[in-house]
Structure formats: structure tokens, C-alpha cells
Design a protein around this nucleic acid. Sequence first.
DNA 1: GTCTATACAAAGATAGAC
DNA 2: GTCTATCTTTGTATAGAC
Lengths: 210, 210
Amino acid sequence: MTKTLGKTRDKTRIQRKNTATILEAALDVFSTHGFRGSTVDQIGNAAGLSKPNLLYYFSSKEAIHNALLSGLMDTWLDPLRALDAQGDPLPEILNYVCRKLKMSREFPRESRLFANEIIQGAPRIMGALDAELRPLVDEKCAVIAGWIAAGKIAPVHPYHLMFSIWSLTQHYADFDVQVHRILGQDTDPYPEAEVYLETLFTRMLTPQTI
Amino acid sequence: MTKTLGKTRDKTRIQRKNTATILEAALDVFSTHGFRGSTVDQIGNAAGLSKPNLLYYFSSKEAIHNALLSGLMDTWLDPLRALDAQGDPLPEILNYVCRKLKMSREFPRESRLFANEIIQGAPRIMGALDAELRPLVDEKCAVIAGWIAAGKIAPVHPYHLMFSIWSLTQHYADFDVQVHRILGQDTDPYPEAEVYLETLFTRMLTPQTI
DNA sequence: GTCTATACAAAGATAGAC
DNA sequence: GTCTATCTTTGTATAGAC
């Protein structure tokens, strides 16, 4: 609102910074407690801002949640988009598994945010599932079906293969607490998980030449 | 409080019926919205009882939730308890997978209740994880390690094998909405899931004789 | 045992001063 | 842009009539 470019850019910089801080804090809170289980106060505290100030940047609690979700689906699908129909079938799939596992490791909160949303009936991302997820999955499953038909990998149900990759990799983010209760608090499960999953998919997908 | 056995039993019968109705309704609501996302009103409506009447049977919202959780862990571990160290290794594991998948099919709400709890940090069942889940898992993983050492099944990390069984089977209950969005609303995913999982674990665990 | 009415606390959102 | 104070709604739980 001020006239000078300098001040305008200052404002924008603060806004950007606070917006980012809020989203960061909100990710923490929403991913742990779910949408209805989270309060604006909690998010404010986590962000170091007062409740009214927080609502100066976002018009409502739901607006914050939407901002998080709207960016999420895109990022979430990146590893699958990178699956290359022209590549070597088995390595392509193993690399996809690897990328997905890396996402769980690096973005566990995003994974839990997504999981919370799906478990609770996906009320806010049902549209994105139909518009973005399903078409991409259909496309990539067709690729996999092609590889199977060509005898490049062993025959399996492409869609359930997809489900298995998701569930196996996301488990380490979503059920993190349980994994650590079993393996011990100080254990990093990811290195062994990577070995395990590579073994699993290699054995399952290697064509039987007998 | 009445003197005659008849009336006393009548009361008890009503109490049992209403208690069961409430728990049934609460399972519906809690498994969908999580603890903090659920309201006593919702549960009351689902149970066909007024809010105060519901609180006549359970002292608080948390008491209802506790009643559900306390029974859950035991049921949840039954399929794993049945894993028999004396049995044939591969069929034993495949049967465990099968029982676990059947649990997802028959008790999807219980699965989601559990998933909600774990994702949100397991505040109310951390104790049960340490006291019941971990010892049982340790025991059964030792059995599996024995089978591997004896060359009865191919070498894999026993604990990650366990995680993979859980994640693959529970996925069909917890991410039910997503599965149906991908496969179509009217598709029953379980028959093909069973074939897929049997194939997966057979290929992974069959010892390589080469 | 079940209801209506209500107390009480928590949470979302706004007003208005600074 | 940020705060204090406040309004309003919603939600947990209880009081007390029937």
C-alpha cells in the first residue's frame, strides 16, 4: 500500500516469510492431529504468531489446510511421473520405489497429512484423486502392463503393484512411531528398508526363465 | 437395583444392548474422524441416543474411546499369535498374510481406528505397543530368523518382512477410499489382492536353489 | 433410564486500538 | 502488521424433572 518500491518489497518479504512460517507450523500440527483435531491456537503457537495475526494471513483454518493440500498432490506424484516407459523395466520400477521411500524419509509430515486425509474419507482431496492421481496411475499401469506383455518383468497385477509400492514406502512415514517402538528409538530404519524393498521387488518382478 | 432377578436381568440386558450400540456407533465415528475430530453428538446420533443418555453409560468421550482401544490390540494380534513355529515356513507366512488381509476386509473400521491412533503419535496406545506388540513381534521374528538360518525360506530382514505384511494388508482397509477411486467404486479389490500378495511373498521367500 | 435445559470450556473468527 | 478484547459457535459434561 505504500508508495515506494522499497517499502512495498519490504512488506512482501515479511508476508512471504510469515506465510511460509505459518504453513510450516501448520504442516506440523495438521499432520499430527488431523484437520479437526488441530486448532488455530496450536498453529499460532508453533509459528510464534498470535491467533488474530495468523488469521490476517489466512482467512480461516480451512484456508491454511487447503493451501497445504493444494500443493501436496503435485509433489506427491512427481516420483511416479518420472517412471519412464522407455527405460529398463526393472530398474525403472526399483528407482520409483527408491524415490518414493526417499519421499517418506524427507517428507514424513506430508505423508501423514495425506494419510490422515485419505483415512478420513478424503473429503477435501477427492477431486484431486480423480483429476490427477487416477489418470496418471492409469497411464503408468498401462506402461507396466506393456512390460509384462513383452516378458520384460514377471506377470503381476499392475494396480496392486502400485498399491504395494505406496503402502510399503509410506508405511515408514505414517507408522513411524510403531516402527521405532519395535526397532528401538535410535534405529534408523531406512537403510535396511531400502535393501529389503529392493530385494522384494527384484525377486517378485524378475521374469522366471524356467 | 430392583429386587427381582427378572427386573435386574432386564436392566442388564438393556444396558448391554445400549453399551454395544454405543460402541458400534463410536467405532464408526472415531475410525472416520479420529478422536478429537469426533463429537459426542455425532456418536449419539449414530447410536440413536441423546447425548446425556450416552454419557449415562460412559463417563466421558475418552472413556468410550478407551473401551474401543483396550479390546482392539488383543484382537489385532490374534493372526500373528497363530503363526506356528512348528509349521511349514512358507505356508505359515502365507496364511498369516491371508488372515491379516481377512481382518482388513472384515474389520476395516478397527484398522482405521488403529491407523489414526498410530499416525497421530499413538498417545493412547503407546503402552500397549511396548507391552503387547513388541514382545510378540520379537518372538515371531526370532522364529522367522530360525527358518532363514535353516534355509527353509530365502533370507530377508524379519522385522521389515513383518512391516511389509502389515502395510500391504492394512492398506486395503486404511486407504480404502483411494483404492476404490483408482479401481472403480464397484470393484472388490480383495480377491485380486489376495492373489497378488500370495504371489509376492511366494516369489520373495522361496529359497533360490541355484 | 431417558429426556430438556443449562452450565462451562474451548475454539473459530472479528473489531478496533496501536 | 500486530496486538488485546470480544463475539459466537460448538462441544463436553451435568442438573434435575419425569
